[in-house]
Design a binder for these strands. Structure first.
Lengths: 342, 342
DNA sequence: GGCATTCTGATTGACGTACCTCAGAAACCT
DNA sequence: AGGTTTCTGAGGTACGTCAATCAGAATGCC
């Protein structure tokens, strides 16, 4: 026989359909004893509500907002593409998404954008932005208004967000460290670390993980202080050129952030490309080509498709007050080399 | 306004609901001209059928069978667990799955099991089994009976299977090769390759990819002929012991199949563990621990959760005659080291 | 016991689709 | 024109749930 329905529950509990409905939807007007009887019946029969029938009946539409940094970052670009693709594929699943671009470098406009969200018209928000106290407060306000919030890519701990969708950046840094050490192979040498901003939470965490591994497992390799590129390719070129001459025993470069265009350009200009071990983050059209051309040795990345699908699933689950399927929502740290390029 | 419904289509095309229904479900009894009018209306309004409402209405139950090798393989074990977990989570999505265990080493019983499937009670089959001409024929029979078939983990080309859910084993072998070469670091040395059966399709493909990379990128490393363990730990121990003494310059071991228990035991006994670079396939409780203990340097794997979810999605799509979302169904070759263990 | 209050049952109409029947319209064939 | 076949329309029931109404039962209170 098939799955139990509300009718079966009603029969089993010896109450009417209306009462079952009231219990299931936590509506008032049912005595405690009756509530228990119904819940016992639900347990016994192993009833699970048919979410689709329910959504059909209540004409549900999940309206989500994704607050993403604007700008020319290829990573955010692929993320946005994945989001559009996923929502298109899920149109049948009654999900509509709007992307809210914010200038990420300006905490004030981020907060303004968050506060300007049309809360009563929203069922959930995904946020990818650096953590500031103001952002934390804005998230808390959203939560207080009853809107589920998930942090995307970069966590917002202590903000009361419902969930974090992204990788553990400490582990990502450690992973990069091991690959760097083993790929270099030599016992001695220097490793350069570059990033967009040394203040970004993910950069800090990656650096910590990277340093820990290098210190423990590859003591012969010296890791130089992080260098900031601040999204400026020119600056990156200058910095790399200087480093290459200043450190003749430079053996590797770890790019923690997203300024890979400038990095590659600089390496090409200095003629050290293919010679240094280069490890970068995020698989984008740029890093993909660089992997194929053997200009980058490995990319540590997170699958943007998984990211957005996970965010959507989690938001939906939070809306429905349903538990999430942990194993499916754990975003993995992908190691991509030329040979396993997806 | 919301998504268009069949009612909107009927109005737009100037026909009745019944006619729209006949057209949408390819039922007979509609003139060609009318069919065109309806399809034009579908195009114009951008109608997409609400699959869930449809399934609700037709009381659809997707009944799938998974034909999996029986035996004590940990990989198959985790796969089965993932399958149960996924179907439990998807119970609300009207899928029921039964696992059909077959003795994989016996092609005859595989074929017998395939032919014994209760075809009229099945909506789709996923098969994980070595490829033989008889299996190909059995798959063709299933297809002929109108049952969608997907190959799982190990492809069945030329069998007419609808889809292959799994990784490209040639690339997986190449990936292992690059990691092996770079992890070893030394210019000279020997590499041993072990597998369960040198006849399995996946082993053959992995070996090809591995050899290609080693020959091209690490000419100083000598790859020894594949050694078969035939699921026998004793045999594995003997083989490894012999290899270690016969090749004092042994630098690495590549385990292509699933006999990792014997391999690890043998390496421990010979005292060479932690000294050799070891690369294995499939993340299981066993390899997970070995990674943590630094007994294995890297594991090439495929996420069993993705595998089964993908198989289920593809089967459902085939049942519904709907296209699949390619990007989501591409199974990635995961590289797992100690630091990015999920 | 009478009354107000709180629970409960029975019923109904959505939601978007599938599938069925039956009658009647339109087209085809001689 | 007549009869036959092929199309089409109208309408119904069902699926599992939500939401609402209204009448009636049970309970509490004095």
């Amino acid at each position: 026989m098939g799955k139990p329905t509300v009718h079966d529950i009603a029969k089993e509990a010896g109450v009417s359909l209306a009462t079952v409905d009231r219990v299931l939807n936590a509506r008032p007007g049912v005595r405690d004893k009756t509530v228990e009887r119904v819940q016992a019946a639900v347990q016994r029969l192993g009833y699970v509500r048919d979410t689709f029938a329910a959504n059909l009946a209540r004409q549900r539409q999940y309206r989500f907002a994704f607050v993403l940094p604007e700008g020319e970052s290829q990573f955010v670009g692929t993320l946005k593409d994945a989001l559009l693709e996923a929502t298109e594929a899920q149109m049948a699943e009654r999900v509509s998404v709007r992307v809210v671009p914010v200038p990420s470098y300006d905490p004030h406009s981020v907060v303004r954008a968050l506060n300007a969200l049309p809360v009563p018209l929203l069922d959930g928000v995904a946020i990818m932005t650096p953590e500031t106290p103001q952002v934390r407060d804005a998230v808390a306000r959203l939560k207080a208004a009853g809107v589920p919030v998930v942090a995307l890519v970069s966590d917002l701990p202590n903000s009361g967000r419902d969930h974090f969708v992204g990788i553990n950046n400490l582990s990502a840094g450690s992973t990069a460290g091991v690959l760097m050490g083993r790929f270099i192979g030599a016992a001695q040498g220097k490793v350069m670390v570059v990033t967009n901003s040394i203040l970004a939470r993910d950069s800090i965490e990656r650096r910590l993980g990277f340093d820990a591994v290098m210190a423990e497992s590859f003591p012969g390799l010296t890791v130089l202080p992080s260098i900031e590129s601040r999204d400026d390719p020119e600056r990156m070129v200058a910095v790399i050129r200087h480093a290459v001459t200043a450190h003749p025993d430079l053996a590797g470069v770890y790019s923690m952030g997203s300024g890979n265009r400038g990095l590659l350009q600089a390496l090409r200009e200095t003629g050290r490309i293919g010679d240094l071990t280069v490890i970068a983050h995020e698989l984008t059209p740029l890093t993909r080509v660089a992997l194929q051309e053997r200009e980058i040795d490995a990319v540590i990345t997170q699958n943007v498709g998984h990211l957005v699908r996970s965010a959507l699933r989690v938001l939906r689950a939070k809306c429905d007050g349903v538990g999430i399927f942990e194993a499916q929502e754990r975003i993995r740290i992908d190691i991509v080399i030329r040979e396993n390029l997806p």
